[in-house]
Every structure is written in C-alpha cells, then in structure tokens.
Design a binder for these strands. Structure first.
Lengths: 120, 120
DNA sequence: TAATTACTTCGATATGTATAGAAACAACGA
DNA sequence: TCGTTGTTTCTATACATATCGAAGTAATTA
C-alpha cells in the first residue's frame, strides 16, 4: 500500500501538461553527471537552469512563479533534482524515478492473477 | 504537443491512490478477451464487476458513488474499459494504454539531446 | 555596500477534485 | 407490472491546485 501511494504521487506530478513538458525536456537533456561513491546516486553536474526551463515552456526569457511552482512539485515527487550553482539553479531529471514508474507499469502488465472471489 | 496532453491525462488518472489501486487490480486480472478482427482492439469478455472493484477497494460489499466516479475517470482517460453484461458492468484494463505510458517514459529515457540554446 | 541577477515564496483568486448521501436509471425476475 | 439488484448521476461540501503579480531572498558584481 505504501508503494501505491508513492507511485501515485509520481504519476500525479506528471498529470499536469506543463509539468510533463518540463519533465520530458529535462529527460532529453544530455549532460555529465556525478556519481556518489557510497550510495551510487547520480546527480547532474550541468544542465538547464530554471530560466532555461521557463524559456522552453513559455517561449519567453522570463522566470515565472508558475514554472517555479511546477519545478517544486516535480522535486517533491522525487522526479527531478535541483542544485544551486552560483546564482543559478541547475535542474536535472531523476532517471531512477522514471525507471521506477516504468517498472511499476511493467509489473502490472506481467503479473496476472485469476479472479479472487472478493466479498462473497 | 497533442501527445503531451493526452499522456498527462493518463498520468493524472493514475495520480490518485484509489484510482491507481483500481487500475493495478484490473491489470492483475487474468481473463479471456475478444479481439476485433478489423481494428485488432482487445476487450475483456469477463472480469470484475463494479461491485467487485468496490469490494476490493473498500473491503465491503457495497457499491459506492466514489468508486463509480473513479471508474469513470479511468474510463475517460482511456485506461480501462467497461461493458454492460446484464445488470452488471464488467471492468477491464486497457493494456494498450499502459503500454503507451511505458513507451512514452522509455522514449524519454532513451532520446537525449545536447542542450539547445533556448532564448539566448 | 548598493545594485543587479536569478529565483522562490506569499497572498489572492478562480477552478478543479474527492467524497458522501440521495435520487435516478436500467435490467431482470416474480 | 412491481419489486429488486446493480450501477450511475446529482447535489452539496470541503479541500486541493494552477496561475498571477508582488514582495522577499541568495549570490554576484559594480
């Protein structure tokens, strides 16, 4: 049941068109990453700034509070990472999260049970 | 851009814990299907009724308007199918929709672009 | 240290969503 | 045709969410 709730938060985060655009934009970015030797966690070293994300979304070179809000939602859902670099915030996708969603959906496709006789 | 909006509707539908439970429950059901010879579309011949879905979700043998509401949302997002069979409504997952979501996420993982110099 | 850049948070607002009970509806059996 | 079963729709309500402009904050430069 815990997994269900975590997963629904991820899906919910992608459930807004603007956030889905941001996510796929970040997913498409190819950039060098740092790997933590202890945990193996991967975080982007460079990548789009918040301004660049805004730009991609709105087409204008202005940072909006709306995009900032959506970035926060994506971050809280664990779908993206953000790290300060000087005045900028560098955004990157959390590829593990995407992998988890894929795995979740794939499991469902694979595992089939015969009808349980529920409430009878 | 159209694809983005369609996809976000699917993710949104799975973005509620109750709906995600319903979806995975239906995904797990193994049942005979009918294949349309023209389109190749697959639809379940038998499967859980609305009452059985309710039962799985709430643990009680009562149909609630809430579950009915969530089933409708899933249906409108294209994630499940529902067909009347006598007094019952037979629910089934639309496996193609799940496949589409998986494909969408996978594409994002695969396709990487070098930074486009956006708004500069 | 004052100004500038890059971004976030706050406050207001309008709209959407989940839930629950009651009423309506559709199919079947007596 | 009347009641019963299985399900949906309606209505009300409480809560969440997206958006926008304004104010606030952090890092850098003049």
């Amino acid at each position: 049941m815990y997994r269900n709730n975590e997963m629904s938060l991820m899906f919910k985060a992608l459930g807004d068109p603007t956030r889905l655009r941001i996510f796929t934009f970040l997913q498409a970015q190819c950039c060098p990453v740092a790997v933590e030797t202890e945990t193996g966690a991967v975080s982007p070293l460079t990548g789009p700034t918040v301004g660049e994300v805004c730009c991609h979304v709105t087409g204008e070179a202005v940072i909006t509070s709306t995009v900032s809000f959506h970035l926060k939602e994506l971050r809280l859902a664990g779908l993206i990472t953000m790290e300060r670099s000087g005045r900028h915030m560098i955004c990157g996708v959390n590829r593990d999260a995407a992998a988890q969603m894929i795995a979740f959906l794939n499991e469902g496709q694979a595992e089939r049970k015969t009808n349980d006789d529920c409430c009878k």
